[in-house]
Amino acid sequence: MGKGLITLRDYSRKEIEEILSLARVMARDQRTGTDIAKGKILAALFFEPSTRTRLSFETAMLRLGGKVIGFSSSEGTSVGKGETLADTVRTVSQYADLLVIRHPREGAAQLAAEFSSLPVINAGDGSGNHPTQTLLDLYTMIDHLKDLEGKEIALVGDLRYGRTTHSLAPALALFGVKLILVSPQELRIKNEIKVELDKHGVKLRETEDITEALDADVLYITRIQKERFPDAAEYAKVAGSYRIDRQLLGKRTPLIMHPLPRVDEIAADVDDLVTAVYFEQAGNGVPVRMALIVRALGLGG
């Protein structure tokens, strides 16, 4: 049996690089498609909606010649009727060859893996892990910057509740980058994550001021959510001060990334810059997830 993916936290840089190089192989014949997963079924259990992640997993499985079953929200399913995750997972394990799970609670993928007889890929759980997003982020950065060693990566926005950066920051630490953490005071990165970063001995700097990060090699922008603020005016003020546009960037050309969906944290006038790679980044989700499926199904590659 192949290997699922719950979290990258216990992965070495070498293991991550192996997945990324498999993804590069997948990217080559992504458009023509293959049939190495012919006859295999992926069950996509999405207990909360996520258009991008689900579509990109589906695309990945279809490109590999396999089939997909599943649901995209818990409404109207047995889960909506009160079934436990443990039971859902044990049942679906009887049907499919691989589980992909997205869940609003932290640790859900770990629990699923314990109850499933199949490999499990974590497609995001609560504000915890989102390892497939992290891998496609790393894939995109390495694609553009070649070597990440010594590069300055600025993570901007909601670093407290956003699962994307929770997953990404510790993984980046393995690649010898310097981190700039840019967020409003109330959305600073959690202590848990900082402890982890310290453990890796990563150089990091925290700031509330986006202008201090503009010379970084990568600006990784995340959305600041309205719900995190007591009132709308406060939100508008804070969110506005982290908005990226052409004027703010001036002549600088950092790689600009975003896990999407964006609201207005990146102005539309930035989209035309060659270094604005967020749509390409989303596209990289396909070869990366193809690689993870191949690995999970033990198909070699």
């Binding site: 009160g82 436990t84 995750l85 443990a86 869940h103 609003p104 609670r105 932290e106 640790g107 859900a108 770990q110 629990l111 314990e114 759980d125 609560g126 504000s127």
Partner: peptide, 12 residues
Amino acid sequence: PNCITTALREPV
């Protein structure tokens, strides 16, 4: 409170 182990009836 958002940990899966604290969810109602999960057998963990």
